[in-house]
Amino acid sequence: VSVELPAPSSWKKLFYPNKVGSVKKTEVVFVAPTGEEISNRKQLEQYLKSHPGNPAIAEFDWTTSG
């Protein structure tokens, strides 16, 4: 189950709350306009370098507050 949070234009930000008793931590995933899922800052940096014209990296908020 995921919750969609505010994201930069043409992107989606999905929040996957951890299940009770789960060892997996809460996860935030950005979905690029191409449909590619980005789950960490390093991936995001690589994606933005190879896909010019996207929002600046500073516009991506990895917190769950939206």
Results as ranks from 00 to 15, higher is better:
Val1Gln: 11
Val1His: 13
Val1Cys: 15
Ser2Thr: 11
Ser2Lys: 09
Ser2Glu: 08
Ser2His: 11
Ser2Gln: 09
Val3Leu: 10
Glu4Val: 08
Glu4Phe: 09
Glu4Trp: 09
Leu5Asp: 04
Ala7Met: 05
Ala7Asp: 03
Pro8Gly: 05
Pro8Asp: 04
Pro8Asn: 04
Ser9Trp: 10
Ser9Leu: 13
Ser9Met: 12
Ser9Val: 11
Ser10Lys: 15
Ser10Tyr: 11
Ser10Thr: 09
Ser10Asp: 11
Trp11Arg: 02
Trp11Pro: 01
Lys12Met: 07
Lys12Val: 09
Lys13Thr: 03
Lys13Trp: 03
Lys13Leu: 03
Leu14Ser: 03
Leu14His: 06
Phe15Gln: 06
Phe15Thr: 07
Tyr16Asp: 02
Pro17Thr: 15
Pro17His: 12
Asn18Glu: 09
Asn18Ser: 12
Asn18Gln: 11
Lys19Arg: 14
Lys19His: 12
Val20Asn: 11
Val20His: 11
Gly21Asp: 10
Gly21Met: 07
Gly21Cys: 10
Gly21Val: 06
Ser22Asp: 12
Ser22Ala: 10
Ser22Leu: 09
Val23Leu: 14
Val23Asn: 14
Lys25Ser: 11
Lys25Asp: 14
Glu27Ile: 15
Glu27His: 15
Glu27Val: 15
Glu27Leu: 15
Glu27Gly: 15
Val28Trp: 03
Val28Ala: 04
Val28Gly: 01
Val29Gln: 04
Val29Ala: 06
Val29Cys: 06
Val29Pro: 00
Val29His: 06
Val29Asp: 00
Phe30Thr: 00
Phe30His: 01
Val31His: 04
Val31Asn: 02
Val31Met: 07
Val31Arg: 06
Val31Tyr: 07
Ala32Lys: 00
Pro33Gly: 01
Thr34Ala: 02
Gly35Tyr: 02
Ile38His: 02
Ile38Ala: 02
Asn40Ser: 13
Asn40Tyr: 05
Asn40Ala: 04
Asn40Cys: 07
Asn40His: 06
Arg41Glu: 10
Arg41Ser: 10
Lys42His: 12
Gln43Leu: 07
Gln43Glu: 13
Leu44Val: 01
Leu44Pro: 00
Glu45Gly: 07
Glu45Gln: 11
Leu48His: 01
Leu48Asn: 01
Lys49Asp: 11
Lys49Gly: 08
Lys49Ser: 11
Ser50Ile: 09
Ser50Ala: 11
Ser50His: 09
His51Trp: 04
His51Ile: 02
Pro52Ala: 06
Gly53Met: 05
Gly53Phe: 05
Gly53Leu: 05
Gly53His: 06
Asn54Trp: 04
Asn54Thr: 07
Asn54Glu: 09
Pro55Glu: 03
Pro55Leu: 05
Pro55Gln: 04
Ala56Met: 08
Ala56Ile: 07
Ala56Leu: 09
Ile57Gly: 04
Ile57Val: 08
Ala58His: 14
Glu59Tyr: 06
Glu59Leu: 08
Glu59Arg: 05
Glu59Cys: 11
Phe60Gln: 01
Asp61Met: 05
Thr63Phe: 06
Thr63Ala: 09
Thr63Tyr: 07
Thr63Asp: 09
Thr63Leu: 05
Thr64Ser: 10
Thr64Glu: 07
